[in-house]
Design a protein around this nucleic acid. Sequence first.
RNA 1: GGGCGGUUAGCUCAGUGGUAGAGCAUCGGCCUUACACGCCGGCUGUCGCAGGUUCGAGCCCUGCACCGCCCACCA
Length: 858
Amino acid sequence: MSIPEKPALEGLEDKWKARWDADGTYRFDRTVPRARVYSIDTPPPTVSGSLHVGHVFSFTHTDIVARYQRMRGKVVFYPMGWDDNGLPTERRVQNYYGVRCDPSLPYDASFEPPFDSGQGRPAKSGAQPISVSRPNFVELCVRLTGQDEQAFEHLWRYLGLSVDWSLTYATIGPDARRVSQAAFLDALAHGQAYQLEAPTLWDIDFRTAVAQAELEDREMPGAYHRIRFAYASGDGAVEIDTTRPELIPACVALVAHPDDERYQPLFGREVITPLFGVPVPVRPHPLADPEKGTGIAMICTFGDVTDVVWWRELGLPVRAIIQANGTLRPLTWGSTGWESRDATSAQQHYDSMAGLSASKARTRIVELLRETGDLIGEPRPITHHVKFFEKGDRPLEIVTSRQWFIKTMELRETLLERGRALHWVPSHMLARYENWVNGLNGDWCVSRQRFFGVPFPVWYRVRPDGTTDYDAPLLPTEAQLPIDPSTDVPDGFRADQRGVPGGFVGDPDVMDTWATSSLTPFIVCGWRRDPDLFARTFPMDLRPQAHDIIRTWLFSTVLRSHLLENQLPWANTAISGWVLDPDRKKMSKSKGNVVTPMGLLEEHGSDAVRYWAARGGPGVDTAFDAGQMKIGRRLAIKLLNASKFVLAKTTPAGAIAEPLDRGMLWRLADLVRHVSRHLDAYDYASALRETEDLFWWFCDDYIELVKRRRVADDAAAASAVAASTRALSVLLRLFAPFLPFVTEEVWSWWQMGSVHRAAWPTAEEVVDGLIDASQADDHTASRAASDVTARIRQERSLLKLGFGVPVRLSLTMPKGSERAWSAVSRDVLAGNNVVDVRAVGFEADQLAVTIEPQTPDA
RNA sequence: GGGCGGUUAGCUCAGUGGUAGAGCAUCGGCCUUACACGCCGGCUGUCGCAGGUUCGAGCCCUGCACCGCCCACCA
């Protein structure tokens, strides 16, 4: 046994993370059967940014569970992934290396980005980004994210995550691509995936389709414009309100509620669009809201998703004017589909808008409408909610394009059932899942017109006339995966047939980032790569994640698992809350007040930061609070010192026969039961709180009362030694999941092996050998000792008598306390520096204590 | 507009039917042979508001207010 003279927390992180790595303390043993495995589907953090306090918070929660399960005897399968796939990485790589992806370029194996050796970093090509092929671009993404991943791993190790670092994966890695592509081909083969050219939500800056799950509403200033539509018959006009007058050229009908008496006479008749002279029908549809605006609305192709519904359900024609880049496309009025009563005038009006963005076109058309008198009154400013891509800067448009979809609408009921079968912690988070599934309004659009992602493993024949045959895609075999159709060549073709009539082309799109992330259980468990591993780890035990991605990550994983394996991907999900600023707002990266996690860990110590994190219960948003970290640090230091004191005397150890010692152990046994139950229910916050409470009592009451008895070499001392070392062993193990560094340090002073591989304590072990004792009597005696001690301390404080002053005690106790008092009186007197007892009575209703100083000469 | 969670001491939070709690902060005291990064003690509350159920409500029921979040077809 070697105990430092002055134990300290400094340096414990570096010391023990190195040792754990060298010893393989957290290595997964893949030879054990499924029943002994506890497998965790860890969220892969996005590598293109930096980790923040929220990550430290939630990953600590998962690690506590992992450590608990490991000590319970489970072999923990705890991998770590990096989400390096997707738009954020793409943007970062473009800026960092000064490149741009052009999927039409061939791969250049010798490509190196310009490097500024003077600066020791990639050269910022000032003017034009260099165009590179998709494989080259992906190489750069992998290179850059590799650097970030090292920094992330360092942080996680420093925080003490008990991850098996040999099980690391990246969402752009070969296996993630293989799984994503295989799962897609599987869905295609089963009719669960399909391709369709249809109006889709579209980000005009990123120039890609986006999915419902990636939308967010933002409040925007807008304005109602009241517009006059003349009857085609020329005998009147009707007025509509619109916030998007620039879409009048795309108007295909007006719509009002079928029961709206004001407009019933108009149904079936035609009106003429102002400026463009296009006759459009007036149609009834129940989605039209009589309360909104004038009660009659303009249907355009397409202004919002309601337009899409109306267009589809009313069988209206398409007159699309917004292009992929968000500007109005050039078009010829009077041609097919653009018939006008006055094509010349329509053309003139339109030409002054063509090429403008929607917002500029709006300004322009208001001028035109004002000139023609079709604008009634002035625009009335309003604030309204507009749909945005969550990463986008301008409102979404709806653009018709060819996209891949995975069927979800027909599965809604099934997915609701799956969600209910999952064990949710906390349980109310299920409501968010149900809310989302019930609100789904279309199949999942999984294709993105981007570059850094998993490509669709699909080629198409090019017909002799040069057009593309989308109806019979060419597919690779599963053994060929992963492939990149922009460089790989389908069987039966030669590379020089790419893009030529009679040849082939690759699908240019990549998958939505969630199309890969939804497969994390399949990636980590070795689906179709390592059936033996898969059988030992899937379905997994736990999916930990934050509540904001229930609609994306959790939902999509349940969906994919249903499609691929017809079962839930995990048995439990533990939803962590957010870290909030002191002002109760979500701590966001954009705010300047975000503390870097590494700085936090270095300042307070990893155990202290973990303590703060563990105090935030499952699903509970928690305030960032450095004060809690200081308390955690204090606790860790206390553990060092109390352990040092307990271990300063480990002999003689004998039978635990003293009532105070037994009372302490009974109490500890109860604690073990409680803490185990809490942790089984993922309630780490309660587990820590109760352990902490008992530990402080152990230090301040129990140890203080027995420390003098313990000094001797008699049986009473041997009882104290045995009880306190046993208690220390148990307490260290209870704290180990929360404070892995300090507990390991103390454990190493006197035990073999790692505390993190030690067996979780049992209540039976704590009270082993005490079976003949009366638990109730010991509890009573223990409580009496604490009560009397508290009263003596209070008296000392009132009389301003320091502990060093010996006192004489007068004591009256409640009736029936005789036995309890005699059991602990020796400890209470010694532990409170009472040198003389004047009177003890047992006739009082309440405890009463008086003391007086006993001067040396008295 | 629909849904979920929250509202308890100055702060951060426990407390699901039986005399309102902890830590921090604050104030006072103490070198006591583990720890002054320590120890002991004191002070601190219309448990958001209004009704109801109950012998008894911080806790259960109803309504409302405020905070946060999720969702929504937002012309």
